[in-house]
Amino acid sequence: QVALSRTQVCGILREELFQGDAFHQSDTHIFIIMGASGDLAKKKIYPTIWWLFRDGLLPENTFIVGYARSRLTVADIRKQSEPFFKATPEEKLKLEDFFARNSYVAGQYDDAASYQRLNSHMNALHLGSQANRLFYLALPPTVYEAVTKNIHESCMSQIGWNRIIVEKPFGRDLQSSDRLSNHISSLFREDQIYRIDHYLGKEMVQNLMVLRFANRIFGPIWNRDNIACVILTFKEPFGTEGRGGYFDEFGIIRDVMQNHLLQMLCLVAMEKPASTNSDDVRDEKVKVLKCISEVQANNVVLGQYVGNPDGEGEATKGYLDDPTVPRGSTTATFAAVVLYVENERWDGVPFILRCGKALNERKAEVRLQFHDVAGDIFHQQCKRNELVIRVQPNEAVYTKMMTKKPGMFFNPEESELDLTYGNRYKNVKLPDAYERLILDVFCGSQMHFVRSDELREAWRIFTPLLHQIELEKPKPIPYIYGSRGPTEADELMKRVGFQYEGTYKWVNPHKL
Score class of each variant (00 low, 15 high):
residue 253 I to S: 02
residue 255 D to R: 04
residue 255 D to S: 03
residue 260 H to C: 01
residue 260 H to R: 04
residue 261 L to T: 05
residue 263 Q to Y: 03
residue 263 Q to L: 02
residue 264 M to W: 01
residue 266 C to A: 09
residue 268 V to H: 00
residue 268 V to Q: 03
residue 268 V to I: 12
residue 270 M to I: 07
residue 271 E to S: 07
residue 273 P to E: 03
residue 273 P to R: 03
residue 273 P to T: 01
residue 274 A to T: 13
residue 277 N to P: 04
residue 280 D to M: 10
residue 280 D to R: 09
residue 280 D to W: 07
residue 282 R to V: 02
residue 282 R to K: 04
residue 283 D to N: 11
residue 283 D to C: 04
residue 283 D to S: 08
residue 285 K to H: 00
residue 285 K to M: 04
residue 286 V to F: 08
residue 287 K to L: 07
residue 287 K to G: 09
residue 287 K to F: 06
residue 287 K to Y: 06
residue 287 K to R: 11
residue 288 V to A: 10
residue 289 L to N: 00
residue 290 K to Y: 07
residue 290 K to N: 13
residue 292 I to P: 02
residue 292 I to K: 03
residue 293 S to G: 12
residue 293 S to I: 05
residue 294 E to P: 11
residue 295 V to A: 15
residue 295 V to R: 11
residue 295 V to F: 08
residue 296 Q to R: 14
residue 298 N to W: 07
residue 299 N to P: 07
residue 299 N to T: 11
residue 299 N to Y: 09
residue 301 V to Y: 02
residue 302 L to G: 03
residue 304 Q to L: 00
residue 306 V to W: 11
residue 306 V to Q: 13
residue 307 G to R: 15
residue 308 N to L: 08
residue 311 G to F: 09
residue 311 G to C: 12
residue 312 E to V: 12
residue 313 G to R: 10
residue 315 A to R: 10
residue 316 T to E: 13
residue 316 T to H: 12
residue 316 T to Y: 11
residue 317 K to Y: 13
residue 318 G to I: 03
residue 318 G to S: 14
residue 319 Y to Q: 07
residue 320 L to K: 12
residue 320 L to S: 09
residue 321 D to C: 08
residue 322 D to Q: 05
residue 323 P to R: 14
residue 324 T to D: 07
residue 325 V to D: 02
residue 325 V to T: 10
residue 326 P to M: 06
residue 326 P to L: 06
residue 329 S to K: 04
residue 330 T to L: 09
residue 330 T to A: 14
residue 331 T to L: 00
residue 331 T to I: 06
residue 332 A to L: 02
residue 334 F to W: 05
residue 334 F to Y: 11
residue 336 A to W: 00
residue 338 V to N: 11
residue 339 L to G: 06
residue 339 L to Q: 06
residue 340 Y to D: 05
residue 341 V to K: 00
residue 341 V to D: 00
residue 341 V to L: 14
residue 341 V to C: 11
residue 342 E to N: 13
residue 342 E to F: 11
residue 343 N to V: 05
residue 343 N to L: 05
residue 343 N to T: 13
residue 344 E to G: 09
residue 345 R to D: 08
residue 345 R to V: 10
residue 346 W to H: 03
residue 347 D to A: 11
residue 347 D to E: 14
residue 347 D to M: 09
residue 348 G to E: 05
residue 348 G to T: 06
residue 349 V to M: 06
residue 349 V to W: 02
residue 350 P to K: 05
residue 351 F to R: 01
residue 352 I to W: 04
residue 353 L to T: 03
residue 353 L to R: 03
residue 355 C to T: 11
residue 356 G to R: 02
residue 358 A to L: 04
residue 359 L to F: 04
residue 360 N to E: 08
residue 360 N to G: 10
residue 363 K to E: 07
residue 363 K to Q: 03
residue 363 K to I: 06
residue 364 A to S: 11
residue 364 A to I: 10
residue 366 V to W: 00
residue 366 V to K: 02
residue 367 R to C: 01
residue 367 R to H: 01
residue 367 R to I: 04
residue 368 L to M: 11
residue 368 L to G: 00
residue 369 Q to K: 05
residue 370 F to Q: 00
residue 370 F to L: 10
residue 371 H to E: 08
residue 371 H to A: 10
residue 371 H to Y: 07
residue 372 D to N: 11
residue 372 D to V: 03
residue 373 V to M: 09
residue 373 V to H: 06
residue 374 A to T: 11
residue 375 G to P: 10
residue 377 I to R: 07
residue 377 I to V: 11
residue 378 F to C: 07
residue 379 H to T: 14
residue 379 H to Q: 13
residue 379 H to S: 15
residue 380 Q to V: 07
residue 380 Q to M: 10
residue 381 Q to D: 13
residue 383 K to Q: 15
residue 384 R to F: 01
residue 385 N to H: 03
residue 385 N to Y: 01
residue 386 E to I: 00
residue 386 E to D: 00
residue 386 E to G: 00
residue 387 L to C: 05
residue 387 L to D: 02
residue 387 L to V: 06
residue 388 V to P: 02
residue 388 V to Q: 01
residue 388 V to I: 11
residue 389 I to S: 01
residue 390 R to N: 14
residue 390 R to A: 12
residue 390 R to Y: 05
residue 392 Q to S: 09
residue 392 Q to W: 01
residue 393 P to W: 00
residue 394 N to Y: 12
residue 394 N to C: 07
residue 394 N to A: 08
residue 394 N to D: 14
residue 395 E to Y: 03
residue 396 A to I: 02
residue 397 V to K: 00
residue 398 Y to I: 03
residue 398 Y to P: 01
residue 399 T to V: 10
residue 399 T to M: 11
residue 401 M to D: 03
residue 404 K to R: 00
residue 406 P to Q: 07
residue 406 P to D: 01
residue 407 G to R: 04
residue 407 G to E: 09
residue 408 M to I: 09
residue 408 M to D: 05
residue 408 M to T: 05
residue 408 M to W: 05
residue 409 F to I: 14
residue 409 F to R: 14
residue 410 F to L: 13
residue 410 F to P: 12
residue 412 P to T: 11
residue 415 S to Y: 03
residue 415 S to W: 03
residue 416 E to D: 14
residue 417 L to C: 05
residue 418 D to P: 00
residue 418 D to Y: 01
residue 418 D to S: 07
residue 418 D to C: 06
residue 419 L to S: 05
residue 421 Y to A: 00
residue 421 Y to F: 09
residue 421 Y to V: 07
residue 422 G to A: 14
residue 422 G to Q: 13
residue 423 N to I: 11
residue 425 Y to D: 06
residue 425 Y to P: 05
residue 425 Y to M: 05
residue 426 K to S: 09
residue 427 N to W: 08
residue 428 V to E: 15
residue 428 V to C: 13
residue 429 K to W: 04
residue 431 P to L: 06
residue 433 A to R: 01
residue 435 E to A: 08
residue 439 L to W: 11
residue 440 D to V: 00
residue 440 D to L: 02
residue 442 F to T: 13
residue 442 F to D: 05
residue 444 G to R: 08
residue 444 G to Q: 07
residue 444 G to M: 06
residue 446 Q to F: 01
residue 446 Q to A: 07
residue 446 Q to E: 00
residue 447 M to V: 12
residue 447 M to W: 03
residue 448 H to A: 08
residue 450 V to I: 06
residue 450 V to W: 00
residue 451 R to M: 02
residue 451 R to C: 01
residue 451 R to V: 00
residue 454 E to F: 06
residue 455 L to Y: 03
residue 456 R to T: 07
residue 456 R to D: 05
residue 458 A to M: 05
residue 459 W to L: 04
residue 460 R to G: 08
residue 460 R to S: 09
residue 463 T to H: 02
residue 464 P to N: 12
residue 464 P to V: 09
residue 465 L to E: 05
residue 466 L to H: 02
residue 467 H to Q: 11
residue 468 Q to V: 14
residue 468 Q to T: 11
residue 469 I to V: 13
residue 469 I to N: 09
residue 469 I to P: 00
residue 470 E to D: 10
residue 470 E to V: 08
residue 474 P to C: 13
residue 476 P to F: 01
residue 476 P to D: 00
residue 478 P to E: 12
residue 479 Y to N: 01
residue 479 Y to F: 05
residue 480 I to P: 10
residue 481 Y to N: 12
residue 481 Y to H: 10
residue 482 G to Q: 08
residue 482 G to L: 04
residue 483 S to W: 06
residue 483 S to Y: 05
residue 484 R to Q: 01
residue 484 R to Y: 03
residue 485 G to R: 04
residue 485 G to Y: 02
residue 486 P to R: 02
residue 489 A to M: 08
residue 489 A to P: 02
residue 490 D to Y: 08
residue 490 D to G: 08
residue 491 E to N: 12
residue 491 E to P: 01
residue 492 L to G: 00
residue 492 L to N: 00
residue 493 M to I: 15
residue 493 M to Y: 11
residue 494 K to H: 13
residue 494 K to P: 04
residue 494 K to Y: 13
residue 495 R to N: 09
residue 496 V to N: 14
residue 497 G to A: 10
residue 497 G to D: 12
residue 497 G to P: 00
residue 498 F to H: 12
residue 498 F to C: 12
residue 499 Q to I: 12
residue 500 Y to P: 01
residue 503 T to D: 14
